[in-house]
Design a binder for these strands. Structure first.
Length: 766
DNA sequence: GTAAGCTGTCATCAG
DNA sequence: GTCTGATGACAGCTT
């Protein structure tokens, strides 16, 4: 039965660790950081608010350690850290909305605005916006110039020509069908998105115009001509700030120094990325052959669960305000509630509109902002709910943010287009969504900067080396000290005198300081001179919660309030049983703290101590308890003791041994819990680190993909048939051969090959 | 007055 | 068989 209980007790803890490892939310931190005193106190000990003074151990506190879980100073420390983090968080949110303004450019119909207005570097939306996007001052422009398309692109009018069967070079380069540029076509998408828009547009500062003009007003600054989103007060600004905050945090987290190259890459992507609204043919020709965008829902869910576990873990250490803003979402939707912005926020609406027309561009257009160019996913994360309304919540959440979706949004969205172009297996198919992973990075950043109770315990570890899962207390410092104390006690014990009348306040104090190590009844027998020789055995140093380092009596003497502290476990002792003769007169109590301590310690005599006195046991309880068996028997043989005395002595020894054993047992139990908690924390930290690394790899992979995509577009765009006309992307596609060569093959053939390659990974998964 | 925590003690088991 | 340590359970005490 006992083994079963032990098994259950330890099993629960181990099960907790396992659950945390497999991603199931088992957040010890939740209980540690939340206001749940029971478990927190089990593990970390009672908070200062709940802490009960160690009345049994006067010297239990302020033993020299800087921060103790029970210390009030620790609370102050946490408070200071929390406030500091909040202040920092406030500073982070003081972000201009420049980038966000650019997000709304795409809503401008016909691109009239972006074409005429000074480019903000983000006028991606308009039909010519793809070219306008890369303003002269933008690194993207440089990349386009390098590709030799910039001039042609700039020549595009603000209003896209109607759709024609023939694709122009610009169309190919843009990577989007002309339908995208058709206002009527995009107007439909806007209508859909308008449903998502709430009072943001209703609060349009330029009312009175038509819906179209309204949209323009939302996008164009009347003074500067710069495209910008409607400045709606209230939560919209907050959302915008939260978006930028997210971007900045991600930027800080991003380990890549890719800023220099990214704009160029992005420009390529902008050209290449197709839109959902594109006709299949146009879309296909722009689809990277490397990307399939097929991602099984199972993997997504699995990854989502992983993220849930880790993000929840980290979220608890993140500034609350930050998390609230980052994941501000209306209740009810589990996904959106936790990991996406509110769909009805203006930014989302705008972005959604943008994405509806140029989904691919929207994924990364945030990169055009110098401040956030290294943080593309952050922007994409905000696009989670922005996928066209015909997408499911889950699909929109994942699809729009998925890297594969960046190139192949249709396949991940409800508007998936079966006529996707030449595709290669998406190497990211089984990987986590980048948006979410970046959020992980964000959270990791917070967790790294933050401070949590576990870290506090780790601080303690620096002072308390008694760690590890080992239950062998004999290896602990305390045990060492105990053994040392025991040996010294046995060797130095001289049985100097009876403890009855020799106990004075000074002697008690001296013994108090000399012993240091604490053993059985050390708190109650210090009155005896011979007991001052060294209480031995167990050193009740509850490493984490109940440190009982009494080596510094000065500290105790400096803590007069401790005089009134103390359990009285002399349960069965009548007041008269206490040796009043040992007690100094009340008047002497005022002479000094030492005397007071002595008086207090007199009262702390244990029951067995009083019994021993009553039975006139000629040696101390310390000896009775701590002497080795041989010495103990030898000691007994030296005296003529009655049977009652012998029985009492044996009882004292037994109880004393058991008392120390119980203390050791409890100490081990607490240490075990602490170590398990520490292990869980370490494992969670490792998990978070691995996920961060995964995010980094994904970023790197995406960069490579973008480069490949850019090259693909460039090569394909330069191809000419025998008549000097460019090949239609709907009819031809480039295929990478195994030997590194690139072949121009019919689209149908490329599609077939792509499907074959797409099936292979699926089969492998099965 | 009650709940919770701490400590001592007992009983029991195992080495 | 004895001793010792470990541990669950309980009681007493204090806050």
């Amino acid at each position: 039965m006992l083994s079963l209980k032990k098994y259950l007790t330890e099993g629960l803890l181990q099960f907790t660790i396992l659950l945390s490892l497999i991603g199931v939310r088992v957040d010890v931190d939740t209980y540690l950081t939340s206001q749940l005193p029971p478990l927190r106190e089990i593990i970390l000990g009672p908070s200062s608010a709940y802490t009960q003074t160690q009345f049994h151990n006067l010297r239990n506190t302020l033993d020299g350690y800087g921060i103790h879980p029970k210390s009030i100073d620790l609370d102050n420390y946490f408070t200071a850290r929390r406030l500091l983090s909040q202040v920092r968080a406030l500073d982070r949110f003081q972000v201009p909305t420049t980038e966000v303004n650019a997000w709304l450019v795409h809503r401008d119909p016909e691109g009239s605005v972006s074409g005429s207005q000074p480019s903000s570097g983000l006028a991606l939306e308009s039909s010519s916006g793809l070219q306008d996007v890369t303003g002269p001052d933008n690194g993207v422009r440089e990349s386009e110039t390098e590709q030799g398309f910039s001039e042609d692109l700039e020549d595009l009018g603000a209003v896209a020509p109607p759709v024609s069967g023939d694709l122009t070079k610009e169309d190919i380069d843009l990577g989007a069908g002309r339908e995208i540029f058709d206002y009527s076509h995009r107007q439909k998408e806007q209508d859909v998105d308008k449903e998502l828009q709430d009072g943001a547009e209703q609060e349009d500062p330029w009312p009175g115009e038509g819906a179209e003009a309204l949209a323009r007003n939302l996008l164009v600054d009347g003074e500067t001509g710069e495209s910008f989103p409607a400045q709606v007060p209230g939560g919209e600004d907050q959302t915008a700030l939260s978006l930028e905050e997210c971007l900045r945090l991600l930027e800080a987290t991003c380990p890549f120094g890719e800023n220099a190259e990214f704009p160029a890459d992005i420009s390529s992507v902008t050209e290449a990325v197709p839109s959902e609204s594109e006709p299949p043919g146009l879309q296909n020709n722009l689809l990277s052959p490397l990307l399939t965008g097929t991602e099984s829902p199972f993997d997504l869910e699995q990854q989502w669960q992983d993220l849930m576990s880790i993000m929840e873990m980290q979220a608890m250490e993140v500034n609350t305000s930050t998390s609230e803003i980052l994941y501000d979402a209306p209740p009810g939707d589990p996904l959106s509630t936790n990991y996406s912005l509110a769909p009805n926020t203006p930014i989302n609406q705008n972005v959604s509109l943008h994405q509806a027309s140029l989904g691919g561009c929207s994924q990364d257009f945030s990169l055009f902002s110098p401040e956030v160019e290294s943080l593309p996913v952050a922007g994409s994360s905000t696009l989670l709910p922005l996928v066209p309304s015909n997408s499911t919540s889950l699909n929109s959440t994942f699809g729009s943010t998925n890297l594969a979706g960046l190139f192949f949004p249709p396949q991940l969205n409800g508007t998936a287009n079966d006529t996707a172009g030449p595709e290669l297996p998406d190497p990211l198919g089984g990987l986590l969504d980048e948006a979410m992973l970046d959020e992980i990075s964000l959270m990791d950043l917070a967790i790294e900067e933050g401070f949590n109770p576990v870290q506090a315990s780790q601080l303690e570890e620096e002072f308390d080396s008694d760690s590890g899962l080992s239950l062998d207390s004999s290896h602990s410092p305390s045990s060492l000290s105990s053994s040392e104390g025991s040996s010294s006690s046995s060797s130095s014990s001289s049985s100097s005198s009876s403890s009855s009348s020799s106990s004075t306040s000074s002697s008690a104090s001296s013994s108090f300081s000399e012993e240091g190590a604490v053993g059985y009844s050390s708190d109650s027998e210090t009155l005896d001179l011979e007991e001052a020789e060294g209480a031995v055995g167990y050193q009740p140093e509850y490493s984490k919660f109940c440190r009982m380092s009494y080596q510094d009596p000065a500290q105790l003497s400096c803590l007069p309030y401790l005089e009134h502290v103390g359990h009285n476990h002399t349960y069965n002792m009548a007041p008269s049983a206490l040796d009043s003769a040992d007690l100094p007169p009340p008047s002497t109590l005022k002479k000094g703290s030492k005397e007071k301590q002595a008086d207090f310690l007199d009262k702390q005599m244990s029951r067995d101590e009083h019994r021993a006195r009553a039975m006139k046991i000629p040696f101390t309880n310390d000896k009775i308890i701590n002497l080795p068996v041989e010495e103990f028997n030898e000691l007994l043989s030296k005296y003529q003791l009655s049977e009652a005395q012998l029985s009492l002595i044996r009882d004292i020894r037994r109880r004393g041994k058991n008392k120390m054993a119980a203390q050791n047992c409890r100490k081990r139990k607490l240490d075990t819990i602490l170590n398990l908690e520490r292990d869980v924390e370490d494992l969670q930290r490792d998990k978070a680190r691995l996920l961060r690394e995964k995010v980094e790899f994904l970023r790197s992979l995406r960069q490579m993909k973008q480069k490949v995509q850019s090259l693909y577009q460039e090569v394909f765009g330069r191809l000419r048939d025998e008549n000097g006309r460019p090949y239609s992307p709907s009819q031809y596609a480039l295929q990478y051969a195994g030997d590194g060569s690139v072949l121009l093959i019919p689209r149908t053939l490329a599609d077939q090959q792509a499907r074959r390659q797409e099936r292979k990974p699926k089969d492998r998964r099965k």
